Amino acid sequence: MIKLGITGGIGSGKSVVGELLSLYGVPVFIADTEAKILTNTSTEIRTELINLFGDDLYTETGLDKKKLAYYIFNNQKLLQTVNRIIHPEVGRSFRSWVDRQKGGICAIESAILFESGFDALVDKTLSVYAPEEIRIRRVAGRDRISEETIRQRMKNQISEEIKKERSDFVIYNDDHTALIPQVHTVLSSLNQ
């Protein structure tokens, strides 16, 4: 089975590309969703995060995401520590998920595919590219957050140019170039 890693910066449209791949019958593992689930269900992650931040990081309903975000988005070293706790668990979950898939291709969608090391778990990589101003407009409309907050989040990801250079495929999601033909081209190449 060919494993495809899908990445792109915040607001690039990687989820849209993942959904299009799903319509073609390619199962897609969403790393961010799995990480959110694991922060509440993995005893290992919970224990390590509590050791790092204290018991009040978790409430009766689970992880206090706002509190965690407050700690890590203002401190690169803490962000890296949290990632070293969560990413190995997500990687294990992905490998287990792959073992249950059928067909010739499956994919993982991750904004931080390269930063997390998830690119080592796949055979090919695909970067979804959109110009920065389009990405900011999309995220501001979707998440109702300020441009400053969006730019701060962008700083926590490697540049779009580096992602493009490191990827086997690039899909342009610039509001002018049709996505479906690009997805079809990638799938045709993977199926050869």
Rank of each mutant, 00 (worst) to 15 (best):
Q152N: 13
G9I: 10
N51A: 12
N74T: 05
P88V: 03
G141Q: 10
N75P: 00
F29G: 15
I150E: 07
Y129W: 13
I136D: 02
L21N: 14
T39G: 05
Q101W: 06
T41E: 10
S159A: 06
D174G: 07
S146W: 10
Q152V: 09
K163R: 11
I171E: 00
E34S: 10
V170W: 01
L113N: 11
N173H: 14
E109T: 15
I180C: 01
N75V: 01
R151V: 11
C106E: 02
L187D: 13
R138L: 01
A140V: 09
I45H: 05
A130K: 13
E115L: 06
L187P: 08
M1Q: 15
Y172P: 02
L179D: 01
I86D: 04
A69R: 15
A107T: 05
L52M: 11
G11I: 10
G62I: 07
I134S: 08
L78Y: 00
L121V: 05
I108C: 12
T47C: 03
S146E: 08
L68N: 07
L57I: 13
F94P: 06
Q80L: 11
S188R: 15
F114D: 07
T39H: 04
F94L: 09
S188A: 14
D143V: 08
E165H: 03
R95E: 15
R100N: 10
N83W: 00
L20N: 07
F53C: 11
I136T: 08
Y71T: 01
R151N: 06
G25W: 03
K155W: 01
T39W: 02
E34V: 14
N74D: 04
K163N: 07
I162A: 12
F73A: 08
A31K: 11
R135W: 00
I50G: 02
I45L: 04
W97Q: 09
D174C: 03
G62L: 13
S167V: 02
T7W: 05
I150V: 06
F169D: 01
D168F: 00
S93V: 03
M1Y: 09
K102I: 12
V26I: 15
F169E: 00
L121E: 06
R95K: 14
M1W: 07
K102V: 08
I2C: 03
M1F: 11
S22M: 09
F73T: 12
T61K: 15
L113P: 09
G54A: 03
D123A: 05
I37L: 14
K65H: 12
V16Q: 08
S42F: 04
S22I: 09
